[in-house]
Design a protein around this nucleic acid. Structure first.
Lengths: 184, 184
DNA sequence: TAAGTCATGTAAAAAGTTACATGATTCT
DNA sequence: AGAATCATGTAACTTTTTACATGACTTA
């Protein structure tokens, strides 16, 4: 099984979804820490079905094209549950902006500062979006956020990672931009 | 040009290196934010040479096999310098551990807590290694760390990113492990 | 009427990992 | 003698991205 397969199972363990909806989730919720295009999702769904992890049923729609709605099977849920606590083998991080920072000594400092300030803005924007979601979760999901057996707790846990990641990334960009402009 | 190409040029802009040495750097210095295996490095070097970004000369060694030492050309340096300030198009983040967190509600909390505590240890270990390097840099490179035109400044900048990344990641792992164990 | 969304696929190319292949020297 | 390091490559495979392909319906 591929990691993409578990990403899909993770979504289907919460709700039934079509390939189209799965692809959208891959660009939103799960997309912040795992993503895939529809051209990867459709073949993966076929593989998951061939191996008995999911099933589908065709839902006819009047005003929209028909769709295949996928559901996780008992086998799929068991496989997902087992995978969760298995140690993940570390994948190399690849971050182009940090790579640029490594060669920033070659560039015009003012121009480089612009680049990192823009990046800071992007990450701050994402941080603000996450903070709004956090506020909403704390209001609407209060009781569930302390329950490790609740999917809402798990959603909150991943959101926390996003918050920390963006906050830290933005701070680093700002620090570097300041340093490039000679601000002490 | 590929990003890997710029990673290689970034290393060659600082010192001449063989494919073998480049591969090692890809697992150390640059490896923390960009990495590649030797099977990717050798063909990429050939491509870079074919396009005039690098040249090589064979260095004969008595006690070791001969090696090809690569050097960046003026064209290569110019290309690298231009690339640094060009906006990087965002690549999707893929983090299997965060994906596991998304489905952690399915797992036994105690078992899951173990997983995230182990991850916290790994990131804390990496953080400690970075902190040692930081201490060393501040002692040995003090004058350069404020000079944006110095490669040492750039090395320090990427190290800062590593420090923040590991610190934040470890804190998140610890928070999640605590939450899974019901610690408030 | 043109653009956008919903919906599902396949094909080709690029990027990255794992495995295959060789050979000298050095360290234990 | 066996394992590790230095040194360079190719081949096969997996993963991911980009492009090709189609068609209905909705909104501006």
């Amino acid at each position: 099984m591929t990691t993409l397969g578990y990403a899909i199972l993770g979504l289907l363990s919460r709700e039934t979804l079509s390939g189209y909806d799965l692809t959208r989730r891959m660009g939103e919720q799960v997309g912040y820490f795992w993503s895939a295009r529809h051209s990867q999702v459709y073949p993966e769904l076929a593989r998951l079905e061939a191996e008995g992890y999911v099933t589908h049923s065709v839902v006819e729609q009047r005003e929209r094209p028909d769709k295949k709605v996928y559901e996780i099977t008992g086998t799929g849920l068991a496989a997902l549950r087992e995978w969760v606590t298995e140690p993940a083998r570390p994948r190399p991080t690849r971050d182009e902006l940090v790579l640029k920072a490594y060669s920033v000594w070659l560039a015009d400092p003012a121009e480089a500062a612009r680049l990192f300030r823009e990046a800071a803005s992007r990450h701050e924007g994402q941080l603000e979006r996450y903070e709004e979601i956090e506020g909403w979760m704390k209001r609407e999901w209060a009781e569930d956020l302390g329950r490790p057996g609740s999917p809402r707790f798990a959603s909150y846990a991943t959101l926390r990672r996003g918050l920390g990641y963006e906050r830290e990334y933005a701070a680093w960009c700002r620090w570097l931009a300041d340093a490039l402009e000679g601000i002490r």
